[in-house]
């Protein structure tokens, strides 16, 4: 399918890139936003996209059943908050960013060793930059001892 976004695909330059994600999960309950994100990631990283998932339960299943190397997580989905998925990713040392319009959730990243929060709506360049940075420097500590609830406090 020809790419619907007017992004220049330069995948030939990136095939050797060790930091290029190959499979990204998107959790986003606003379908249009999720679709735009999907197109952006596919064009920018030439990668596979899982989702966008509108429900935590679906995203959770996808995380458990697939190898992924990055995730973009909206915080509030139809059936609740995304923390169970973030917990699994954190335990597996898989980097992710939160993508949310809730400013008061700024503290949530701290609970996951500084997982970044992209304030929605975020520009394409901000999203791409956040992903690249997270891939270069994933979590500094990989031994979560608290539950997500503790960390969220």
């Amino acid at each position: 399918m020809p790419h619907p976004l007017d992004c220049e695909i330069r995948s030939d330059q990136r095939t050797d890139d060790p930091l290029r994600p190959t499979r990204i999960l998107i959790a986003e309950d606003e379908v249009l936003v999720g679709y735009t994100l999907q197109l952006l990631l596919m064009s920018e990283f030439d990668c596979e996209v899982l989702g966008p998932f509108m429900r935590v339960c679906d995203a959770q299943r996808a995380v458990l059943e697939n190898e992924i190397d990055f995730a973009i997580l909206d915080v509030r989905l139809r059936d609740g908050e995304i923390y169970p998925v973030a917990d699994i990713l954190f335990q597996r040392n898989i980097p992710f960013v939160f993508h949310s319009g809730h400013a008061e959730e700024e503290a949530i990243g701290a609970a996951y060793d500084g997982a970044p929060l992209l304030d929605k709506p975020a520009s394409d360049s901000a999203i791409v930059r956040a992903i690249r940075e997270a891939l270069v420097e994933p979590f500094k500590v990989s031994t979560p001892e608290m539950t997500s609830r503790d960390r969220a406090r």
Binding site: P4, E30, L32, V33, T36, D119, K120, P121
Partner: peptide
């Protein structure tokens, strides 16, 4: 904020092609 995100998506997607 959500609506702005949706509108931006609408613009991008409507314009493609």
């Amino acid at each position: 904020k959500n609506l702005f995100a949706v509108i931006r998506s609408l613009v991008r997607l409507s314009a493609s092609g």
